[in-house]
Computed example of a mutant assay.
Amino acid sequence: MTFQVSPDQVRTEKPLAGRVALVTGSTSGIGLAVARALAGAGSALVLNGLGRPEEGSSLALSFDDQFGIEAVYSPADMADPTAIAAMMQLASARFGRLDILVNNAGIQHVSPLESFPPAQWDAILAVDLTSAFHTTRLALPGMRERGWGRIINVASAHALVASPFKAAYVAAKHGLLGLTKVTALEAAETGITCNAICPGYVWTPLVEAQIADQARAHSIPREAVIRDVLLANQPNKRFAQVDEIGALAAFLAGDAGASITGAALPVDGGWTAH
């Protein structure tokens, strides 16, 4: 007996089949998990991240092998508008379109405001906020022309609340949420949505290293660092997993997210419910 699969069934199993996504900062951590979730749903991908170009190209090939989708890697520096424009052009040249844009790239520096290095302030604002302006302004015309698009900004709980010693990061993430809302309003009648995912602490290799550093610095057990330092403001006392962020991004990128726009979606274990 021969079984035939209908187009509707394929669409259900791979809801993003035929779409093209670009995820900045997607060679590790949250960005990589988002890219994997979108690929699993059938989307072709432009990956991005700093590092050795051959490693990025190898990562793209692994997406081809694992998910059966086409992926390409861009080493664009998110602090460089010219490099960002070249990355966006790569997406257009390789795939002919860009349907889903995920602005995830980000950097951090912790310092009291009066001694915060101006160069660090400039770098954080460039990567965490201004890069999203450049990618968004370049993605919107094509999305408008096709009458469909999804822009997802990976912000932070710090887009909604503040913490001491993170002036640039908090300012950038608050700005990113503002950009999200403006984009959503300007594109509201075009089939394009724009939303911000606002994670609290998420389990990544960088967080694991931070736990070890804090334990040494304060001479306290690892468990105490997690509960009483890092997760002090997170009522559920657990780290979110990167796959949780990926799953939410994939939902927002699909047809089921069509009426969600201009939203700040906390994934923070209740942090911002205080």
Rank of each mutant, 00 (worst) to 15 (best):
S6M: 13
S6C: 09
K14F: 15
K14P: 08
L22S: 03
V23H: 12
S28W: 05
S28G: 01
L32E: 10
A35M: 02
L38S: 11
L38F: 09
A39G: 13
A41C: 13
G42T: 03
A44R: 13
L45A: 12
E54I: 14
E55A: 14
S57M: 11
L59D: 05
A60Y: 06
L61F: 10
F63G: 09
F63P: 07
D65M: 11
D65C: 09
Q66L: 14
G68C: 01
E70D: 13
A71V: 04
A71G: 05
Y73W: 08
Y73P: 00
D77K: 08
M78C: 14
A86W: 02
A93Y: 05
R94M: 02
F95D: 05
L101E: 01
I107K: 05
I107A: 09
Q108L: 14
S111M: 14
P112L: 05
L113A: 15
L113T: 15
F116S: 06
F116W: 04
P117G: 04
P117E: 03
P118S: 07
D122N: 08
I124W: 08
I124C: 10
V127E: 05
D128M: 08
L129V: 11
L129E: 07
H134P: 00
T135G: 11
P141Q: 05
P141I: 10
G142D: 09
G142L: 01
M143Q: 10
G149N: 01
G149R: 00
I152A: 02
S156A: 12
S156M: 08
H158I: 02
A159H: 06
A172C: 06
G175V: 11
L176R: 00
G178V: 06
T180V: 07
T180Q: 06
T180M: 10
T180G: 10
V182I: 14
T190I: 07
G191R: 03
G191F: 07
I197G: 11
V207N: 07
I211F: 00
R216A: 15
H218G: 12
S219G: 13
I220F: 04
P221A: 07
E223C: 02
I226C: 06
R227N: 13
R227P: 01
D228I: 04
V229M: 14
N233I: 06
N233K: 12
Q234V: 15
Q234H: 07
N236D: 13
A249Y: 08
L252S: 03
D255I: 06
D255R: 14
A256F: 10
G257D: 04
G257P: 03
A258V: 10
L265Q: 07
G269S: 09
G270D: 00
T272Q: 08
